[in-house]
Design a protein around this nucleic acid. Structure first.
Lengths: 139, 139
DNA sequence: TGCTTACTCTATTAAATCGATAGGGTAATA
DNA sequence: TATTACCCTATCGATTTAATAGAGTAAGCA
């Protein structure tokens, strides 16, 4: 299951990507527009800022804004920041690898074999999408 | 994350698929061979039996056995029984569809758009694998 | 019949995670 | 210097997960 944190984070990023230029947008505006609990969104935007995807400006006229062009933000990066590992099992994770305690041999593990394929296909999707691809075309 | 329930279930099914014929295998034997808590495995095997993937035999010489040929058991079925929805979000699920409470329009939802692609690619993997494909070749 | 084996089912538990909320702190700006 | 709006910590209830305990029941065999 995709966590609400990730879901809200994606929506917030998409919303910021639709803004003209890099004008700071207030948390309250994003929260209202996307139907998100404002306080919860605060912590999510904080995470995104710390990861380098967003910048922030304090005081009047402040808010959050994208640092890079949406076209240059691959979904692999976004997903790893928000959701963590892309793989369903640590033993097939590229960035969060961990050996299974119970499994004596990865090469002959049926779960490993299957989950490797899932990881690769999911990774393909995220690599082929940038934040710009998520923005709906305006009619 | 893949739950341990699914992980253990997959290992148990794979183990049963390596057995000659349809001889019942005791829970204790599977648990021991795959390093799984026996009691936990019990409940998993029960689920698999109720879903029609496994048969069971009580009393002496009893145990669990595959009902169908491993080649005829697609991973989509197995995953849905053990893990539930394949989609990461209910609004793109084929078998467990549910509308998002917060999202006014799926067609213009960035999360929906992305997760649809992930679902399709993951589904491809599961459709192209049967239980037989998970069994390691014996050297 | 009676004993053993091994599956069946319910209940309980501890731990972890999730989603949300509360409330004060602090930096920047007009 | 007052206001705005981000920053940070703590807490909380609900849910889920993984595991455990223990009693019940059907099947086979002597």
């Amino acid at each position: 299951m995709l966590s609400k944190k990730t879901k809200y984070g994606l929506k917030a990023l998409t919303f910021l990507a639709t803004q003209e230029g890099r004008v700071p947008v207030q948390i309250s505006e994003i929260a209202q527009h996307e139907n998100i609990s404002q306080k919860f969104l605060e912590s999510i935007l904080l995470t995104l800022r710390k990861s380098g995807l967003l910048g922030s400006k304090k005081g009047k006229g402040g808010g959050y804004y994208l640092i890079k062009d949406p076209k240059d933000i691959p979904m692999t990066t976004v997903m790893r920041v928000l959701e963590g590992p892309i793989a369903m099992v640590p033993c097939v994770s590229l960035n969060f690898y961990e050996k299974c305690a119970d499994c004596p041999d990865e090469a002959s593990c049926s779960v490993h074999k299957l989950m490797l394929q899932v990881r690769d296909s999911t990774l393909d999707v995220f690599r082929n999408n940038t934040l710009a691809d998520l923005v709906p075309l305006r009619g």
